[in-house]
């Protein structure tokens, strides 16, 4: 494909994905709090109201449950809603709608009604924000069959993954790291390209240890592996999980370190560890290692740097794996 590329940050890349998909498909609509006139509190939907009008870029009343519940109705009827929840900490009122309905409509009606919608929400630690503005509870959604969970790590894959998510026939929770929003710029092609929802990405190849990360933690991980011959996997989509890419890598390296910023207990690392233990245990030379947030309530800004896995912590744990 010979397309024009521009250096974009993640906010701009997601904005571009939305814009292009809306131009291509008139059934795509956006709804959420402050997504219209204000362009979203992170400006992800900037200019879209002007381009597409208030029937397609909908500033809703302040009520998350109805944002997602209405998206379900829209989706069943034939639209492709992209709902925005302003911060992941405010997605909890929608859990009833997501767990009780979005995830089950297809099953409940034997495929007669479906729910092709996307719920986008900023997640994660790192912008010194108030209470409940730093959540990373992706594992909750991975636990729910019928929902897909996508976590981009760069502007390029954010655009391609969002387009795939919008076109996907099932509900997708799309988690955007606030810390990454403006942290990195990279070449993002204009025009259509997709990144598939069931494929992990080998960011760098290596022989000694497989380090698995996603979203914001990928970047600290890449810094931490500099002195190792590490294979780094960026999952991108947590659910459905690309097991094959993981197994292949584990069989090669025999060592696994999993990095995530969510608390350890029942974090997605637990699922990965169990999956690897079940199907690739005999290839392991070292115990499975998880580098995670602690089992605590996410602290306010003064202590947030102590909460997140640091490059140092990741490095230390890779060294541990390498002792075997």
């Amino acid at each position: 494909m010979s397309q024009n590329s521009k250096k974009l940050n993640m906010v701009q890349a997601i904005n571009l994905a939305l814009k292009e998909e809306m131009q291509r498909d008139s059934s795509v609509v956006i709804l959420g709090e402050d997504v219209g006139r204000d362009g979203g509190v992170f400006r992800v939907t900037e200019d879209l109201l002007e381009l597409f009008g208030d029937e397609r870029v909908i500033d809703t009343p302040l009520a998350e449950s109805v944002i997602v519940g209405a998206a379900i109705g829209m989706a069943a009827y034939g639209l492709k809603p992209v709902a925005e929840i302003q911060f992941m900490g405010f997605i909890y009122p929608t859990i009833d709608q997501i767990f009780s309905h979005a995830s089950r409509i297809r099953n409940r009606t034997r495929g007669r009604f479906t729910c092709p919608m996307v719920v986008r929400t900023p997640y994660g630690v790192g912008i010194k924000a108030p209470d409940l503005h730093s959540e990373s509870t992706e594992a909750l959604f991975c636990h729910m069959p019928g929902v897909k969970v996508v976590v981009p790590s760069s502007p390029y894959n954010a655009k391609g993954l969002l387009i795939s998510s919008i076109r996907d026939p099932d509900p997708v929770i799309f988690l955007e790291s606030t810390r990454l929003y403006r942290l990195i710029k990279e070449d993002v092609p204009e025009g259509e390209y997709t990144v598939p929802l069931d494929k992990a990405r080998i960011v760098q190849e290596g022989k000694d240890v497989t380090v698995i990360a996603w979203g914001s933690m990928l970047h600290r991980t890449l810094q931490a592996v500099e002195e190792f011959d590490a294979e780094v996997i960026d999952l991108m989509t947590l659910s459905p999980l690309d097991e094959e890419t993981i197994f292949k890598s584990v069989k090669k390296t025999g060592r696994v370190v999993i990095v995530h910023e969510a608390p350890k207990t029942c974090g997605f690392g637990a699922e990965l560890s169990a999956t690897i233990a079940e199907d690739a245990m005999l290839y392991l030379k070292a115990p499975l290692i998880r580098v995670t947030g602690y089992d605590i309530v996410m602290p306010l800004p003064k202590l947030e740097d102590y909460y997140m896995p640091t490059v140092e912590r990741i490095k230390k744990r890779i060294e541990e794996a390498m002792k075997y």
Partner: peptide, 18 residues
């Protein structure tokens, strides 16, 4: 704050994991 304070108020008592 002592960074360890992050743990102190999760529960009435620290868990062994914590």
């Amino acid at each position: 704050q002592n960074p360890k304070d992050m743990f102190a108020y999760t529960y009435g008592k620290l868990t062994s994991r914590q």
